[in-house]
């Protein structure tokens, strides 16, 4: 390239020096604090890798981790299946469908997961005779099934709202366009509307999975030995605080990995929107 003007070859003036503003000082102090506490955490965990606590309890943590994954994936899957009819009923024009669906969603989104779990796990005992009569007592007797049941109902309400919001977000012209092309309604729904809705729903679905992973810690309260349950058992036996620190690290890793993976998926699905 030829310089239009020899003078343009003159050196650029140096950038003004970055001054040590208050914000910059504060930021560096806080970062120093994070780095020091992070380093001491790594040192603490590193010096405890071969401690009796870890040697004794690491298989339990692995088991708990797997149980947590099972709870989360099972209840998310069942919840996803349940959410389809609920979302359909919720957006129905007929009030006999939409009102109960609204009540269902309002109940499960408006009450704490802990109270719902208690209601199902302990509350089933109130109906023991009736449940025995229909042969469901063996289902509700087990904490494991109750937890899956409660979590699935809870997440189905949230997922139904996500699904409904995403489908309503697709402009009406898409339906009309498909009709003009002579596509049947099921084909329109699955080939035109759903793919566009999924793009919108992806982020809330990711948040729901993360909420479920965090919420699954509640299962430990009703005697399920998931990651949190194993942690509490290890702490109550050893009175060693590192029990909770290991659990915190594990949960953070799970959630962060999931968040990163989800960002990748979103980038992939919306790549046609990138310019």
């Amino acid at each position: 390239m030829i310089a239009a003007n020899p003078a343009a070859e003159l050196k650029r003036p140096p950038a003004p020096p970055r001054r040590w503003t208050n914000a910059r000082i504060l930021g560096h102090v806080l970062m120093a604090l994070w780095i020091v506490s992070g380093a001491s955490l790594v040192y603490y965990l590193g010096s405890n890798v071969a401690s009796p606590f870890v040697l004794k309890y690491w298989p339990n943590y692995i088991d708990g981790f797997l149980v947590t994954l099972q709870i989360v994936s099972l209840s998310l899957l069942i919840g996803a299946l349940l959410s389809l009819p609920i979302a359909a009923a919720r957006s129905s024009r007929w009030i006999i469908f939409s009102a109960p669906a609204y009540g269902y969603v309002y109940f499960f989104r408006g009450t704490p997961l802990l109270a719902q779990t208690f209601l199902i796990y302990y509350g089933a005992g109130s109906f023991r005779e009736e449940l025995e009569a229909v042969g469901l007592w063996s289902f509700f007797r087990e904490a494991w099934y109750c937890v899956i049941f409660a979590f699935a109902l809870n997440t189905s309400a949230y997922q139904a709202e996500i699904l409904r919001g995403a489908i309503q977000n697709v402009p009406k012209g898409q339906w009309e366009g498909a009709e003009a092309l002579g596509l049947s309604r099921p084909v329109t729904f699955f080939k035109v509307i759903l793919p566009q809705a999924m793009m919108v729903a992806l982020r809330p679905y990711g948040n729901e999975i993360i909420l479920m992973i965090k919420g699954s810690a509640i299962a430990s309260i009703v005697t399920i030995y998931d990651l949190m349950g194993e942690t509490r058992r290890a702490y109550s036996r050893s009175y060693d605080f590192q029990a909770y620190i290991w659990a915190a690290v594990l949960y953070l890793v799970i959630v962060e990995v999931l968040r990163r993976v989800w960002d990748r998926i979103e980038l992939r699905l919306t790549r046609h929107l990138k310019r």
Binding site: A217, S220, T231, R232, Y244, Y251, L252
Partner: peptide, 14 residues
Amino acid sequence: GLPELLTLFLVYFG
């Protein structure tokens, strides 16, 4: 990223 229950235990016992 931490479950609320775990944060609670970390604060309470910690």
